[in-house]
Computed example of a mutant assay.
Amino acid sequence: MALWSGIYDRFHRFAFAVFSLLAGGKGAGREYVVNLSKTRVAEEQARRKAAAAAAQAGREELRGAEPFVSKFLAKHEQDPEKFIMQHVLAGCTANMVAGSDTTGISLSAIIYYLLKHPRCMRALRSEIASFQERGLLSTPFGFKETQQMPYLQAVIKEALRIHPATCLPMERVVPEGGATISGRFFPANTIVGINSWVAHRNTQIFGADADEFNPERWLISDKDKLAAMNRQWIPFGMGSRTCIGRHISTLEISKLIPRIVNDFDFELSDAGSGNSWVTQDYWFVKPRGFKVKVTSRKPEC
């Protein structure tokens, strides 16, 4: 419903009211995330209050990395009139809503295509082992280290090419005077957009096997062809519509994929899908029935 409300915005108020009613007291979807954010903000406020009291009493609190909610609250405390509590809540909610589904879909796609192409899984594990033997990977794997792993980055790039998390274009309106795009003239006020799923399967750019998962396509020495493919690679959007969370998503994917591929074995489940997943378009292209059996590759200590 959110998908159609976004396209046909005149239905938004009606759809929002209906879904809020159906969600009940606990809420669903975004409302659930908002309620969770409120709970976490309250917990962090209580923690900060206790920490301030402990510091005043001369006791030091031991804590790891500072979470986003703490950063937001610190900004609120610095200027409560300019950065109000609503901004704190909105920031926490946006952090969860904006990056969870898309990154989750991308991680699933990478694992799925590695399992469907055992040769690629073996090549990735070989690269990980080689980097470990040469002392080029710390524990846990560092982001900068994983950026130096060509096959890993090719696998990530290819999975996001073949299965970008979103599948509808961010539409734009042609300005006054019209515009010529790819040799075709579009008059003013025409709504235009490009679908990443279509762009990523352009055989003129990616070759005759554009529908196939092939990480090696990114490991060629032809700089002109690589540049053309990179220009057409838009899983995070492009220009002013580029995803502002792409760097966090890239960090998460680059650190997590080699770690779990190195530590675990995966096996596609046959349940209901014949070893092939089914996807459904909610603007996010979500897999359905994607189940894997997971076993440790290392003996437990």
Rank of each mutant, 00 (worst) to 15 (best):
Ile111Lys: 00
Arg134Phe: 01
Ser269Gly: 04
Val69Phe: 06
Gln78Phe: 04
Ser296Arg: 15
Glu43His: 12
Met229Asn: 06
Leu3Val: 12
Arg201Asn: 06
Ile248Ala: 05
Trp218Pro: 01
Val292Cys: 13
Glu31His: 08
Glu44Lys: 15
Lys38Leu: 08
Ser296Asp: 13
Gly27Arg: 08
Gly6Val: 04
Val97Arg: 08
Ile244Glu: 00
Arg231Gly: 14
Gly99Gln: 03
Tyr151Asn: 02
Gln56Phe: 04
Gly274Arg: 10
His200Asp: 06
Pro80Gln: 13
Gly142Tyr: 00
Ala179Pro: 00
Ala90Trp: 02
Thr295Ala: 11
Val69Tyr: 03
Gln132Arg: 14
Val18Thr: 14
Ile84Tyr: 06
Gly24Pro: 02
Pro215Trp: 07
Thr190His: 10
Val173Cys: 13
Glu60Asn: 07
Thr203Leu: 10
Glu44Gln: 13
Phe236Asn: 03
Ser269Asp: 11
Ser5Asp: 11
Leu251Ser: 02
Val285Arg: 07
Glu43Arg: 14
Ser240Lys: 13
Thr166Glu: 06
Ala65Tyr: 10
Arg63Trp: 07
Arg134Val: 01
Leu256Ile: 12
His76Cys: 05
Gly99Arg: 02
His12Ser: 08
Arg125Ala: 02
Lys291Ser: 09
Met96Gly: 02
Lys82Leu: 11
Gln45Pro: 01
His12Ala: 12
Glu216Ile: 01
Ala23Ser: 15
Ala53Pro: 03
Phe284His: 07
Ile110Gln: 05
Ala42Asp: 05
Leu268Asp: 09
Gln86Ser: 14
Gly207Arg: 06
Arg10Leu: 04
Leu168Ile: 12
Leu36Thr: 05
Ala46Gly: 03
Ser37Glu: 03
Ser196Gln: 11
Val292Met: 12
Thr250Arg: 01
Asp281Tyr: 01
Lys116Gln: 13
Asn35Ala: 06
Ile194Gly: 14
Gly142His: 06
Ile234Cys: 09
Phe236Gly: 00
Pro164Gln: 04
Ile257Asn: 02
Pro140Leu: 03
Arg288Asn: 11
Lys293Cys: 13
Lys293Thr: 12
Ile194Trp: 10
Ile234Ala: 09
Leu114Phe: 04
Arg288His: 09
Leu152Asp: 07
Val174Gln: 08
Ala46Gln: 10
Val18Glu: 08
Glu212Ser: 13
Thr203Asp: 04
Ile234Met: 13
Thr166Phe: 05
Ile110His: 05
Leu251Ala: 03
Gly135Gln: 07
Arg201Asp: 05
Glu77Val: 08
Glu300Gly: 07
Phe14Arg: 13
Glu77Leu: 09
Leu152Met: 10
His163Ser: 07
